[in-house]
Design a binder for these strands. Structure first.
Lengths: 329, 329
DNA sequence: GGTGGATCTGTGAACGTTCACAGCGTGTGT
DNA sequence: ACACACGCTGTGAACGTTCACAGATCCACC
C-alpha cells in the first residue's frame, strides 16, 4: 500500500541508497552492474521519486507558475499557449501551476506562493500596464518572463511576442495595395502591447493619413467593435476600409457595417488580427494577421528556462506574423 | 537572503517551533499571548511555510492535476473552466497543475506524476471514450472526477456536466414550435457525451421524424460543419432547419447554406450549442444553447474536494442549460 | 613497490515541517 | 487532600531525498 521509497529500491537491488540516487540523477561514476540492478529494482518496485523530499533538500520547487490576469477577455489563444508551455516545461520535468491575479487578494496569493519558494519561475500572460505584481515579483528575485511585452517594463521583464507592429504594417500595406484610400482603425486598449503597437504599425504605413478622425479605441470585445465602427461611420461616412486590432472586434464591426447597409468587401474592406476561430465563422471570412502562437509560447518558455538555469540576462524576441487573406478584404 | 524557517519564527517569538506550527495550522490549545507573539514574529520575518517540507511529512501533494486531452479542438470553454477551478481550489490552498495527455508518452507522464503522489486528485477535462488513462488513474486509488461525463465510465468516474440531453431537447422543441417540419441535425463525434446526448435529446423530441437521412456527424470543427451541411442539403434539399451540436459547426453550416443560396432563417433555421464567442460573430447571430460553464466547473471541483476529504462516494450532477434566442432561428 | 589519480560505493547530516508524546501548571469535583 | 481533566508547551522522531565526504579498489606510472 505504501509507496516504495529509495530505501526499498536500494534494498531490492542490494545497493546503498546513495548509488540509487546517483542513477536517478544520471551521475557518472556508477558501475554498469549497479546501474542495471538498480534499474531492475526500480521497475520491479514501481518506484517514483518523491518530489517533495527532493525539492526540499534541493531547495527548489520543481514548478513554474503561469499567472493569468483578469479581466477574462475571451482569448482563444490561451489554450494554445498553455498547451505549448506544459509540453516544453514537461521535457524538463517542471510542472505548470496556474494562478489568477485578478484582484488584490489574488495578487497577494501569487506573491506569497512565489515568495514561499513554491515556484522556480514565473510566466506572465496578458499582464497589463501598471500591474503592481510585475515589480513585486521581479523584486522577489525570481525569474520572470512574459508572453507578450509588459508595457512600461519592456526592459526589465524579458518577453517573447509576435511582431505586433510589423503585423499591423502588413495589414495596412495590404489594404493600401488594394486601392483603399480612407482606412480607419479600431485599436485595442492603449495599455496593452496589442493596442499600442498595432496602432503604431498602422501609422507607420498610413503616415499622416492616419488622422485622429480615423482612429477609434475598443477593448477587444465584440460589443466594443460594434460601437467603435458606429462612431467611425458617423464621423467618416465615406471610409472604404477598417482594420480592427482583433478578429472579435472585427466581427463586431462587420455587424455594424451590415446594419448600415455597407457591403463587405465591396464598399468597405475589413481586416482583423489573431486568426482566431471567429475569423472563419464570420461572413465574409476575415482577412487577418496570424500570430505564430506556438512559437511565441515556446520562446517564452525558452527564456524562462535560461533564466532558471542561471543566465543573468536574456534577450526578448519578436516573431514574424503572416497575413491571411480571405474574403473580407 | 535565506528564507526564514519556522525556527526563525520560533526564535523571534521566544516560543518553541511546536507552538508555531500549531498557530500555523489553526490548532486550538494555543494561549492568546503565544498566538499574538507568533503572529507578530511571522509578520516581522516575512515567514511563509515551506510546502515541500509540509507535504513531505503530511504525505500529501497540495495540488490537483487537471488533465487535458488532445486533440486540441478550439474550445473557448477551457479558459472559463480553468479559471473557475483555480479559484475554488485556491480557497483550499490547493494549487492547480496542468498536464496534457495526448499521446502515450504524455499519458505515461501523467500516470507517473499521479502515482508518485504529486497530486491529491485528478480533474479530467474533455476525456474521450476509451481513453486508457481513465481506468489506470482510477485504479491508482486517487480521487478522480471529470468535467463532463466520461463515456462508458459514467458510474465509476463522478462528473458534473450540463444537461446535454435536456439542452438539445430545448433547441429541438423551439425549432418545432417555430413551425419547422424537416429538421436535420449535425452531431458531434459519437464517442463524446456532447455527441451522443445532444442527439438523444434531439431524438426525444422529433421521435421517428429524426430519421437517419436527417442526421450527419461532425467532429466539432468548422470544416466538418460545412461538409455535413453539404451532405444534408444534397440528401434532403427541402429541409427547413438544422441543429448543430456546436456553434463552430453551426457557423460551418451557415457558410454552406449561404453558398447554396438558402436564406437563414427564412429558408432554413440554424441552431447551435455552447453560446461561445463565435455565436455572436456569425451572420445572422446564432440561436444557441448556453451551458452554465462556471457552475459546472465549480461543481466538478466540489465533487473532487469531497472525494479528497474522504467521501467514498459522490453523486454526479447535471446542470440545466438555457436557450439563447438570436436571429438564426 | 610506492604514489597518485581515476572510478565507484556507503554513510551521516541536512532540508523544514508535522505529529505524538510527555510534561507542567491550574482549577474542579470528591 | 487527592485525583483528574484541561489547557498549553517543548522535544524527538520521522517524512524521502540529495550531497559532501571518506573510504575502497584498481590501474598506471615512475
Amino acid at each position: 500500500m505504501k509507496r516504495p521509497t529509495i530505501h526499498d529500491v536500494a534494498a531490492a537491488a542490494g545497493i546503498s541508497r546513495g548509488t540509487v540516487s546517483r542513477v536517478l540523477n544520471g551521475d557518472r561514476y556508477v558501475s554498469p552492474a549497479a546501474r542495471i540492478a538498480i534499474e531492475r529494482a526500480i521497475a520491479e518496485t514501481g518506484y517514483v521519486v518523491n518530489r517533495n523530499a527532493r525539492n526540499l533538500v534541493r531547495q527548489r520547487a520543481g514548478s513554474v507558475v503561469m499567472v493569468l490576469s483578469e479581466p477574462p477577455f475571451e482569448d482563444p489563444n490561451y489554450t494554445t499557449t498553455i498547451r505549448t508551455a506544459i509540453r516544453r516545461l514537461g521535457e524538463r520535468d517542471l510542472s505548470l501551476v496556474m494562478m489568477i491575479a485578478g484582484d488584490d487578494r489574488e495578487r497577494e496569493q501569487v506573491l506569497r506562493y512565489v515568495r514561499g519558494g513554491h515556484a522556480d519561475g514565473v510566466f506572465l500572460l496578458s499582464t497589463h500596464a501598471g500591474d503592481p505584481l510585475v515589480d513585486t515579483l521581479h523584486g522577489a528575485g525570481i525569474p520572470v518572463v512574459s508572453c507578450g511585452a509588459v508595457i512600461g517594463r519592456e526592459t526589465v521583464i524579458p518577453y517573447a511576442a509576435c511582431d505586433e507592429r510589423g503585423g499591423a504594417r502588413q495589414m495596412a500595406e495590404y489594404l493600401v495595395s488594394r486601392g483603399r484610400r480612407k482606412i480607419a482603425m479600431i485599436t485595442g486598449p492603449m495599455d496593452t502591447p496589442g493596442g499600442i503597437q498595432r496602432l503604431e504599425g498602422f501609422a507607420d504605413v498610413l503616415g499622416r493619413k492616419a488622422s485622429k478622425k480615423l482612429i477609434e479605441h475598443g477593448d477587444w470585445t465584440h460589443a466594443s467593435g460594434e460601437a467603435a465602427m458606429a462612431r467611425l461611420l458617423e464621423r467618416v461616412p465615406d471610409l472604404d476600409a477598417v482594420f480592427a486590432a482583433s478578429d472579435v472586434m472585427a466581427s463586431g464591426a462587420l455587424h455594424t457595417l451590415r446594419a448600415a447597409g455597407r457591403r463587405v468587401p465591396e464598399d468597405v474592406a475589413v481586416g482583423g488580427f489573431d486568426d482566431s476561430s471567429v475569423a472563419i465563422s464570420t461572413h465574409p471570412p476575415l482577412t487577418t494577421v496570424r500570430q505564430p502562437l506556438r512559437d511565441v509560447a515556446q520562446e517564452t518558455v525558452r527564456l524562462l528556462l535560461a533564466l532558471i538555469d542561471g543566465a543573468d540576462q536574456v534577450d526578448s524576441i519578436a516573431l514574424p506574423t503572416s497575413l491571411i487573406v480571405r474574403e473580407s478584404a
